[in-house]
Design a binder for these strands. Structure first.
Lengths: 333, 333
DNA sequence: CGAGATGATGACAACGTTTGCATCCTACGC
DNA sequence: GCGTAGGATGCAAACGTTGTCATCATCTCG
């Protein structure tokens, strides 16, 4: 292993000068600095992170805690976070808690002291996070807790956009198939939807109870959606939408003719299934990047929530029951 | 921060004893060990990894290099590797090289000295890996290079199983839509397919050139498949199969009536699309786990390749052109 | 021309841990 | 009862880095 001593010997200077030349170049005379740089390059010197941490109190490593890495949602966040961490010259410990809150708390407390900060990306134990941080840097993703910095997608705005889209198509009664009970992003979606519905008094929103954020959740919700008389439905995520479409088909109903369906997340299944799903796209990689930036930023300034855009594909259309004239001018008030 | 000194003081022993009691318990008398353990627990002592590394030369961290974390294939491997690393009490640095071989080489050389070993999971620059390791522990996943330990799924056996399945259904001319040119797993698939075809002289295999391992690759291959007169097709992965089905449909062909399609990897899109894909399932998490085990194993013993199983869904059926009697007894020789 | 300021560089301690070696104590064998 | 083996424990060095302080040379201004 090449150390500062080797570089110092090669450059004919002391180890202090080597350290300074590489860490704070302006503190060292130009010719000396250059000699050090050349020597370091030729020897292939890589500062030892562990030693550096031991002395300086920084690890150069960050942590990312996700409930399920094979979920494309978290995989995308992880990808963004990883890329940004690399930009900052930091490593990223990725931990998958397998949806287990106990494991999450334990992992958090063992990870926190070994890193410069942790991105906690999970709808589970927020209180455990708060307990474990003890002054450590933690950033929450798509979640909120008093006094803890967080980044989030603007789910409320996304819901409003989706509702406006459906209203413009002529829908007047829209169901929402919600996600897990404790989910912060589900609460945000519901709140945004309620606010938007209030704004447009010609649209009625029917929120439906908690469902698993998987294909089965959508299948379970389908019959309730049909029964409530809605002509369109918003879902917690794309998988729920897929399950919904599946069950509707099995009942002989067509999407979008009999019911318009809007997914959420724009995971890549949305464009693969048939019909391709109209869905809400949050830039999850940007979310991961923003989380890392916030973690490494000196100020605790809360960043603006990330935009959520509507991606229109083939699962939404004017309702079959709407009068012709209204269908011809869908954007009219 | 709680250090060995704090624990030592609390337990009334020296720091050496604390270190030994926690690291090699058999070297310390039972009552003393217990006092140390109690003190450590009460104080919430966590050994400082950096300091430990500095002295002992072990980091307690492993590295995982993947080309694309948002690809469910690599996400599954990462999940398995992460879980196993945690079991071993190690952290896992995950790095996404964004399919960039240059970045891969750079990342590898900066990651290797900071970890106890690296799992390289990527069809790209093997030679860079070899250059960067310099005696460092590296394990390849689904790839082979002389003298470098590796874990792999038994793609050849999987292909044979798929071919036997199609042959049993009555297919006699089967196309293979291959993946990227440099891909090791593509070569394994072709080799396994050729060997299996040789074994059954009533089945003909038509290998088709390199295609992108994405939906577009399948779309691009569809017309070649139809033109070559095959009644069934094997694909490099599920996404290619999805693209293939998409293009076939656009041409008015039905799957599986007009053409049987077999995917590969059993990513979760396989069961979501319509028709649900018959596909080959490699247990990718097990692959990730095996890679970590091999990395941490003292001996360099090469593990057996992991099984690849056939998952039969609705995208395969007897060929429409086959005589009735043969279709009624599909498993007959 | 000399004194003080400024800038560049070197010596050295410290971070928390592990581990070789020394030391002490106990227990066993003769 | 004494010698010694061996187990248990403590001491201190070392890992590679950073940063403080001291030292030295050079420059500037009176």
């Amino acid at each position: 292993m090449v150390t500062v001593h080797d570089v110092a010997r090669a450059a004919g200077v002391s180890i202090s000068t080597v350290s300074r030349a590489l860490a704070s170049p302006q503190k060292v005379a130009a010719p000396t600095r250059e000699r050090v740089e050349v020597a370091a390059r030729e020897l292939g010197y890589r500062p030892n992170r562990a030693a550096s941490f031991l002395r300086a109190g920084r690890t150069g490593a960050l942590g990312l805690v996700v409930p399920d890495l094979s979920n494309p949602y978290f995989a995308a966040v992880a990808k963004g976070a990883q890329a940004r961490a690399r930009d900052h010259g930091a490593g990223l410990f990725v931990v998958d808690t397998e949806e287990n809150p106990d494991l999450e708390a334990e992992v958090l407390s063992s990870l926190a002291p070994q890193t410069d900060g942790v991105v906690l990306c999970s709808p589970r134990a927020v209180e455990a996070a708060l307990a474990a941080l003890e002054g450590r840097r933690v950033v929450l993703v798509n979640q909120a807790a008093a006094g803890v910095p967080a980044v989030a997608a603007d789910h409320a705005a996304g819901m409003r956009r989706a509702l406006e889209h459906l209203r413009a198509l002529g829908h007047r009664r829209v169901a929402y198939v919600g996600g897990p009970a404790g989910s912060w992003s589900d609460r945000r979606r519901r709140a945004g939807l309620a606010a938007a519905a209030e704004r447009y008094d010609d649209v009625e929103v029917v929120p439906l109870g908690a469902f698993r954020p998987q294909v089965e959740g959508g299948q379970a919700a389908a019959d309730l959606v049909v029964a409530c008389g809605a002509t369109a439905v918003l879902t917690f995520n794309d998988l729920v939408a897929v399950g919904l479409v599946d069950r509707l088909r099995a009942r002989g109903l067509d999407v979008p003719r009999d019911l318009s369906v809007v997914g959420s997340d724009d995971s890549y299944v949305a464009s693969l299934v048939s019909p391709p799903l109209t869905t809400l796209r949050a830039d999850l990689r940007a979310l991961g990047r923003a989380a890392v930036d916030l973690l490494l930023a000196d100020d605790g300034g809360a960043p603006a929530p990330l935009d959520v855009d509507l991606v229109v594909r083939s699962s939404t259309a004017p309702p079959a029951t709407v009068p012709e004239d209204s269908r011809d001018r869908p954007t009219a008030p």
